[in-house]
Design a protein around this nucleic acid. Structure first.
Lengths: 211, 211
DNA sequence: GTTCGATTCTGACTGGCCGTCAGATTGACC
DNA sequence: GGTCAATCTGACGGCCAGTCAGAATCGAAC
């Protein structure tokens, strides 16, 4: 296995080029967050780091390729979240643990939401590469959640009609999408800590069957 | 209140123009579903109905405006869904009712998912108009859900730490996003009816507090 | 410190889409 | 079949995507 990074012509690149590539990725992330995917132009990304569009195309075939890379990086940041999802949540400590998970998830989301939005859009529009990245990221959490849910079903705390895999997906779905509503919910009195506590209560209930 | 429809120059349009506008909207929806927002070109929309781009710009200032209109139309189709969300779900019939709601929601989603995806993206990227349309659509369901949840909290079936508004939002979030995962979940054995049943069980539990 | 090959970067170009406008076409009504 | 308002479009300037040949830079070797 190699960690080498390649230019579009297939060559391994050196440290100067690596720095340029990194700056391009950072600029892409920055402009994506500021302007959104629909107004993201390669010219702007290049200008942002005072280079020419040709340089961008030296490292990426198109903007999607750069965003795909950013999405992979986001997946790395998502990995530590599974530490919060080990079986054994009890009625006594489960709610606190759920809260810790949600807190961590919210931080992750805040850091990467602009990229994750595009990842999800492209995945849902059928792009193979973005689907792969998203599925891999989601399975990280879903596998852990599934185990916990299976425990709950086996112990009779959860109804047998709950499919563990689908339920795990529903939990991830709820986290992802609810955070997307945040800005609008704020206008109606639902602040960050309300969202955190409610999400935690729901996840605790869904996973353990306790209320 | 007027239902008149205007061209971009502000004039009310007649029946011929109305038909052209309708064809443009339909072509926009079709291409959006086929190619996704990022590859959607006004030239293609015009070609689709064998007219020129100038005609498109006669009715819409840009593609967003057409999609915004499609999103409003989707909201109309969402209204009947609230009929499924009247308080009074019992332990005996609640699961069936939840299933009927989910079934109806899935049909709605199937019809409009391409437009809803873009609506959500633009809303999350901060576009004022798309936010408005999305908030209005979501509040339809959320107001109804909120009432049911409040009942559950008041009756002591649901924990007091559950904020009714946020919980309602979480339910909508779960529905929306989970359906977006459908194609990928299918590969892992979670078919449409599994998704429906699991979602119904979850919603029934969250709303009524019954298991 | 000079040379030279490899690496990295970019100016300049083609082609395509956006959005506009002046004017052509259409059709409803007389 | 003439008139006029409503509707449609050809053609254009401007901007961005993506390419390529070659310029600039680096660093290893002497």
């Amino acid at each position: 296995m190699t960690d080498d990074i390649f230019a579009v012509d297939g060559r391994v690149i050196g440290s100067r080029a690596l720095a340029t590539r990194r700056k391009l990725l950072d600029a892409t992330a920055k402009l994506l967050a500021e302007q959104g995917i629909l107004d993201l132009r390669v010219v702007d990304i290049s200008r942002e780091i005072k280079t020419s569009p040709a340089t961008f195309y030296h490292y990426f075939n198109d903007v999607n390729e750069a965003i795909l890379e950013l999405a992979s990086e986001a997946t790395e940041d998502e990995k530590p979240l599974v530490d919060h999802l080990k079986p054994g949540w009890t009625e006594a400590d489960g709610l606190r643990r759920a809260g810790e998970f949600v807190e961590a998830y919210m931080t992750f989301w805040d850091t990467h939401h602009a990229v994750l939005r595009v990842r999800n859009l492209k995945a849902e529009e059928g792009d193979r590469h973005f689907r792969k990245v998203r599925t891999e990221a989601n399975l990280l959490l879903m596998d852990a959640l599934q185990d916990m849910i299976r425990d709950g079903v086996a112990a009779g705390r959860l109804p047998k009609t709950l499919d563990p895999f689908t339920t795990a997906a529903a939990v991830v779905a709820m986290c992802e999408r609810l955070l997307g509503y945040q800005p609008e919910m704020a206008k109606r009195g639902s602040n960050k800590s309300t969202i955190r506590d409610t999400l935690a209560t729901l996840i605790f209930g869904i996973i353990t069957g306790h209320v």
